[in-house]
Design a protein around this nucleic acid. Structure first.
Lengths: 210, 210, 210, 210
DNA sequence: TATGAATGAGAGTTCATTCAT
DNA sequence: CATGAATGAACTCTCATTCAT
């Protein structure tokens, strides 16, 4: 629908960054994919880093809006909100595969860690606060809020970051809508299991007693 | 100590690839880190790709040995073997941080997906076979073997791949031994939860009935 | 003067290729001779091969125009046209020494044979057609059109391709105007001799009878 | 027949130099073709230039023996000796295609001109001396001895140096025995023509009078 | 806004050569 | 005699970036 050159560059960068990674992507590739001159990228985004920042800022803006809306919804139990959040997160990743792939590459180290960390931290901090408030037992120990968040994050993201490899094991395409549905039900199930435990209130001590 | 130049190159490549990623790593960086001439890399490994392959082959060889040993141990219930496997995997990743970071970057797409996929598939296939044999209900549905494997994988890996970002949220260093211990207990707990469900035998139907 | 950078690159490449040969020529040499940045060569010509192609295309364009003009001139006997062609060819080579030297190196094998062959063939085919039409006896045998063309070509080119060596035998510089004049008269003489034979009509049979 | 490594290197170098040219040939290629270690080349021939020298010295030794034998044969007219020489030369080139291709590339300039020139000059000087002695009119003018030698050389060599290109025009393979025979008869014919002229004694003056 | 031309820096790779064994 | 290992220099080519227009 006749996007502006600036928008076309952003879309092209998103696609190329997601496909081959930031470092393997060249501004020439992106300019060609966008149908614009290489120099125009620098006119709009100053540097290649600036282009990555712009792409990620766009994603984080939309993601944060989505998740904050779910997490901070006043009504509903925390469990329900977590279930919704898991669903919303999976939907978002499913609809923005490049985003997962870019983040997965940059979150593990390298020059852009901060870019990712700064935008991720508020969400993690919010999640941790909610968990600790509702379930005081999630301070320290085996079911510590931090551990839960890491596990949730891992479950949510694994299906996508590992997609190309899983596609070879599974008979079906892991990026299909059917696969998304199954994954959502699975993760929701696990979330329920975990909240069952939290509600039962057995934290570390119970665990240690096993 | 007093490693051969070839070995020094492998170690340097491992460190640099893990820190900045394959594409951002230059052969000059690696050669300098190894204290050898740039050309020696090509003498021993032909290309930069060949160097990555050699690094990963080393890791996969050791990892496969470790995990196969645990998984195929004749005695012990599947639950116990899974618990051990989770522990062994976390130990391995903890001791080989570069490996996680390299794999996380290359598993999501790009020119080296196959390198990762080919070595990962056998392990996944083995895990799936064991789960399906012992728990026939893990065919299809919300608790399908594939879903479980993906979730397990996500939980195991997330703490490391997300490490640099988590380090900013957590008060403690996520790569410390203490953090590893806590993470191991947490994941073991989750594994237990899941096997409890599997042993109770409620698969999709029970889930759907909720 | 005040040539464009692109043109300066072409001239520098011509000079360097002619002097040391394509393989011994480095893009750095050429860039320096042209007074431009090394990368500009690739900006304009994509690869070093592309640069050679561009140089040769320029030559072949001008040469073909020149020779076609002479060969296809409607008036004048074939003998006269051949004499003119020989003169025009020698003039062209004399004015474009690099061209002979480049072609001589690439025509004998290696990666660029096709580049030379494709542009030379039409001229050879034209010459053969004219000879066969006018002198049917030049089909097959000792004075076959192909043999004549090869001999003509050898005579024309030898003085230049062999130049540096001949310079040591001859007292005078073989690239001087005087040398060119003498060579032109000599070759014209030989051409006359040959056409005398052709006009007398004794082809193979006469020859065989000797 | 179980050649010595030194001999195998020489043969391999000959083949590779002839095929791709000295500059495009790498010692690795040659070593592989010879089935020996790269370093052995330097052990036997000191440098890559030394290897080329050795290859060419071998050729020039055999060629000089062959041609001197024919040229200096006491009996027989000069014409007959020239005819024999032409035949012997063509035979030699036919049997040593690499030689022509190497010489053609190096005779036109570059770092090895001297190597070629020094070995070629004696032959040229001898030919010139014989011509001048027998035909005093070949001093200066259109039929000067030097011109004749250049033309002879061009005719002799053209079929081979131009081979790969001619192969596309001619229906038959220019390196076949049949093609060699035809070429020999053709060149012999031309030589006869020229000696007819010389014997008739009309040099420049006759020519100029036409 | 948008571009073609131009550049310095550096990429991966190959080179002929050396040397200890 | 022969080799595997090692190196400094140079290679072609690509990079992100700049600038005049």
């Amino acid at each position: 629908m006749n996007l502006s050159p600036r928008e076309r560059i952003l879309q092209a960068a998103d696609e190329v960054f997601g496909r081959v990674g930031f470092d393997a992507a060249s501004t020439r590739d992106i300019a060609e994919a966008a149908g614009v001159n290489k120099a125009l990228i620098h006119y709009h985004f100053k540097t290649k880093d600036g282009l990555l920042t712009a792409v990620l800022e766009g994603y984080y803006g939309r993601l944060t809006d989505t998740l904050r809306g779910v997490l901070l919804r006043p009504s509903g139990s925390l469990r329900e909100r977590m279930r919704d959040l898991v669903g919303a997160y999976l939907d978002f990743l499913h609809a923005n595969l490049s985003f997962v792939r870019i983040v997965q590459r940059e979150a593990g180290g390298g020059r852009h860690v901060d870019l990712v960390a700064e935008r991720t931290l508020p969400l993690l901090a919010l999640g941790r606060a909610l968990l600790r408030e509702r379930y005081p037992t999630t301070h320290g120990g085996a079911m510590a809020a931090e551990q839960l968040l890491v596990s949730f994050y891992g479950m949510l993201v694994a299906g996508f970051t590992f997609g190309p490899t899983l596609a070879r094991l599974l008979e079906s395409d892991p990026t299909s809508d059917a696969a998304l549905d199954q994954r959502k039900r699975h993760v929701a199930h696990l979330v329920d299991l975990i909240f069952d435990v939290l509600d039962r209130g057995d934290g570390d001590d119970a665990e240690a007693a096993r």
